[in-house]
Amino acid sequence: MTNKDQIQETSTQRRRSASELRRENFHIMLRTLQLAWHAYAKDKAAVGALIFIGIIMILTIFAPYIAPHDPNEAVGTRGGLPGTDGLILGGDMEGRDLLSRLLWGGRIALLTGVAPTVAATCIAVFLGVVAGYIGGWIDQIIMRVLDVFFAFPLVLLAIVIAGSLDPGVSTLILSITIALVPYIARLVRTTTVSVKQEPYIEAARAGGATTPTILARYVLPNTLAPVIVYSTTLIGLMMVVASGLSFLGVGTQPPEADWGTMVSDGRAVLKKAPHASAFAGFMIVIVSLAFAFIGDGLRDALDPRARVR
């Protein structure tokens, strides 16, 4: 009522203000991104890792066009060393082109690393924020149930869940997601509890904000940063776990190409043709390391205080 009376503007003024607001908002967004990138770019390893992951993603997405051969067809001698039969990386123990299999296998490896982490993060953020902000018996119920999952080692839990379902990529994603939720939820809850005590939350309450507004505009943005950092570093780890599950036979099934199964297949001919396992294993290590570096860079990029004008 009274506040609105303070502003009595003509339509021209209003139009001018509206365009200024749009410009201002665009400016805020642009500057936020700029500052974030500036902070991120200071970490050279993180920039390198980001470029590397970008290249790997493009290569694997376009695998059908890039791959020189069908990944599941024998085109060369069994266990052929790199260069033989015109195969750049050689062949595996079935004589299939290793390069093509690496490219195709990267799709599943990246998918089984990224998808469960993203899914688990979404679920965990919801559970953790609710538990941490509301507290009381809701907190107790959510966290005690998650503690039950916590009692089992992550990999073991994933194996149990995957083993009780039909093996396949979706089983792989589902089992890792379930096993991962408690780890992220616990971090989200801790962060939420500390954010909840910040004076700006009390200031918002005094200003008349309702709980949903506070959660969406104050708690969530300030909780998300450490969670995104943590989850990014987990992507690499989950790739390793997914490869491990495939290695054990509860994940992707042969002959489908996947870095995990490739390591497992190559094991049989490790002495004769070590490259069959080595290339896939090397990719798993490098890519998961790259995700860890990206996580490190995001830590600085997402902290508004670390950004210097």
Binding site: N3, K4, I7, R14, S17, A18, L21, E24, I28, P199, Y200, E202, A203, A204, G207, G208, A209, T210, T213, R217, Y218, P221, N222, P304, R305
Partner: peptide, 25 residues
């Protein structure tokens, strides 16, 4: 007492938003 991820202008206007006073312009 200010949200570190919110521009100060937005922070000042927040109470109006909470009480649904005035439109965004």
């Amino acid at each position: 007492s200010l949200n570190p991820r919110m521009s100060v202008g937005t922070s000042i206007a927040e109470p109006l938003r909470f009480h649904r006073i005035a439109d965004k312009v």
